[in-house]
Amino acid sequence: MRRAMPARRSATRLLAMAGGMALGLLASPARTADVEYGKHLSAECITCHGASKSDSTIPDIHGLGEAHFVEVLRAYRAKALPNPVMQSIAVRLGDEEISALAAYYTTAKRPK
């Protein structure tokens, strides 16, 4: 446990370092992801991620690609990425919830 959730490049690098091959690098979002459910679930994310800037420790997750979003959340769920806040949140997300969140955030705009 050394860093909070890093920016996306760092997250990907950490994933690789952690041996991410076992963690769903081949994951793809469910085709029938429930975007409305994803929007509902996103209320939990917004508390910390809603005002992120480019230099924030807590990264902006709006507009993230679905596959990347799924990959990172699954890595937190597997505790292959280090932040305990994100681990605690991700551990109770099933694949369906992660897919729904990814489907929502890929097009979501940061709140203004």
Binding site: M1, R3, T47, G50, A51, I58
Partner: peptide, 29 residues
């Protein structure tokens, strides 16, 4: 989860930055 004794200074500093970003996030929310 809870912070542990003997954690690195880097981690504690990261926690602080995270808390500042959280304040910005939650007050915006």
């Amino acid at each position: 989860f809870v912070s542990q004794r003997n954690e690195s200074a880097d981690l504690r500093k990261q926690n602080y930055k995270e808390s500042v970003d959280w304040y910005q996030g939650i007050t915006t929310d």
